[in-house]
Design a protein around this nucleic acid. Structure first.
Lengths: 340, 340
DNA sequence: AATTAATATGCAAACGTTTGCATAAAATTT
DNA sequence: AAATTTTATGCAAACGTTTGCATATTAATT
């Protein structure tokens, strides 16, 4: 019975050639005659031969595989990034192995060990919330395995990073509210210990400063994880104020959506009485009524950029250790929630 | 310089033992003394040795890797399934390599070749829309690589399948509308050439029959891909009817949500005047007002089940070729859109 | 004390490819 | 015709593990 798959040697025996010749013929090496190449190709087709890439990887110490570590795959942002990574990697002949850290530093660390053993040629990472030390990544660094971080990137750790300009995006979003005539703009922010949410708050502040608006303490609220529920709580607080805001810049779309709903239930008209801007362009932003003005963070493009950078570093000849920080352009998608 | 990573042989030399002994010690083999095991473990730690799993895979012809082919990763349903797959695989010591077919049969076919060469030990697949012949999968079958299909599964091709009972779920959803008092129930369906959408329509019909409701042709509308936009179009048609329906069973949540919005804009009260039920439990179903009653298709559990079945088949001793079809239980999540 | 059984370790081949170097044959130059 | 270059192919080692079998040592049984 045909127990085993055909190998180079089988092909060689069939054709009366050496295995090395077959290997080179399949690689379209110069130095192998056209005639032989054709014979080999034909026979390979006939016997259904395909290279055992594990053996090849082993011999060449090249796996053509990159690893991706994300907190969770089922978060839309990450699934978009992964989609971008897969797309670029596929076209470059690389495979993508995915891992979820589920925000556990322990699991994240174990995954880096697996990737090391499996000889991943590079790794793309979005840090979990628990991660504040980077020893496990330094280990990969020492093994000369290129790393690219995106979104939640390490601070105080030199590394390749793909980010968006959160500060500027927030600045523009807030300025947009000012431009449509808002006079008192509130902010629903995320945890200030997370870089990106801090930057969004700073951008918001800067826009107020530029336009000489006062910063009103009771218009700024930080949430733990920008959840739908927290957004509703904050919205209720804003609603209860003697003098309500007439615009809100939210650090994500979930809180923006729940705010819209809270106000609507209380007969506050959006955008007439309060204009709202979100962040991230979640699918829901195009569905909620009124459609939500939001910042398109171009997750797919982030993924593509991360893969491109990583693969470039993998294939680079010289290993002058260098890191790159790439900022992806965002765009403000103006929709009805802020159009007057 | 420490150019290369430490190998078993390095360890062996350091300890004055044979490589085989080291290998066995690290495997916690019986037949290696406790003393030696400890020595080896300590030295391994000291030199930062970890097995080269490529070499191991090569020697053992076991890669501990499974492949996943989905049309697109950024569709929420698939990202949830993948999340389930990764979760189960991780706990079983397997890695997950993902590929997007982007609904191209050509790409799907090329991916199967890659998986074959890379010695994936099994593959989980959701078919692309173009796929109607299964030769590329038969090839994997012949190589004894176990396959598990989910959601969009092949017809007329014996294979492992993870599905939900679309017929029964739709039946129950429709019956629920009847129970809350709906007398004339419409249906927004998907392409009837796709098995799952056909089954949902059949389930809807069966519930009407059971309760002796007439099937009204103008209350049933099929869309091309159950998009948000198509849902709105159908809703407008239903709205224009001289005698409107008082309940709608939609084959997914997007159409259900857009129907809700169309009716609300036209001052039709949901659920009082029209009760609505969707399908799939998308995140938006918990956000839209009123919250949408929908069928939880348990995507995460489908992923877990797919991985469990696949890994069982990979590890099974006997290769009596057999296929399994596993049906995942759905549940009807009753929310405000159908509560009177 | 001699035999047997149990325990611990080593030897060497194998997995399928790739690659530097050698060699043989053909083509070109002297 | 001899020497040189070019072209095409083969040889054999190597990559790092694993594993069946052999062997050496110690312990247990007669």
């Amino acid at each position: 019975m045909n127990k085993k798959r055909t190998t180079l040697k089988d092909l060689a025996k069939e054709l009366g050639l050496a295995a090395s010749t077959i290997s080179r013929a399949l690689d379209d090496h110069t130095g192998i005659s056209q005639e032989t190449k054709e014979k080999v190709l034909k026979k390979a087709e006939e016997l259904g031969f395909t290279r055992n890439s594990i053996a090849s990887s082993f011999r060449k110490s090249k796996t053509l595989t990159i690893g991706v570590i994300v907190p969770r795959i089922d978060i839309h942002f990450h699934s978009l990034v992964i989609s971008g990574i897969e797309e670029y990697a596929y076209k470059s002949g690389y495979n993508v192995t995915i891992f979820q850290s589920r925000d556990s530093i322990k699991r994240e660390s174990k995954i880096t060990k697996i990737l090391q053993n499996k000889m991943s040629e590079g790794v793309i990472i979005c840090l979990g919330t628990e991660t504040t030390s980077y020893e496990h990544f330094e280990k990969l660094n020492r093994m000369k395995i290129p790393l690219v971080f995106y979104d939640r990137v390490p601070t105080g750790f030199e590394a390749n990073k793909i980010i968006i300009n959160d500060y500027e995006s927030a600045f523009k979003a807030t300025e947009h509210l000012i431009e449509v005539g808002c006079k008192r703009i509130a902010h629903i922010g995320g945890s200030q210990s997370t870089g990106i949410f801090k930057a969004r708050f700073e951008g918001y502040k800067a826009a107020l400063v530029k336009h000489k608006f006062p910063m009103e303490k009771n218009l700024v609220h930080f949430t733990k994880d920008l959840s739908y529920e927290e957004g509703a709580l904050v919205a209720k607080k804003l609603l209860a104020l003697k003098s309500r805001p007439d615009g809100i810049f939210c650090s994500n779309d979930y809180t923006a959506v729940s705010a819209i709903q809270v106000f609507q239930k209380n007969m506050v008209k959006i955008p007439q009485e309060i204009a709202i801007v979100g962040f991230s362009n979640y699918p829901i932003s195009k569905i909620i009524e009124p459609h939500l003005t939001t910042v398109n963070d171009r997750a797919f493009e982030m993924g593509m950029a991360a893969a491109r950078l990583l693969i470039r570093q993998i294939e680079e000849e010289e290993d002058i250790i260098q890191t790159e920080i790439i900022t992806i352009k965002t765009e403000l998608l103006i929709r009805e929630s802020s159009t007057r």
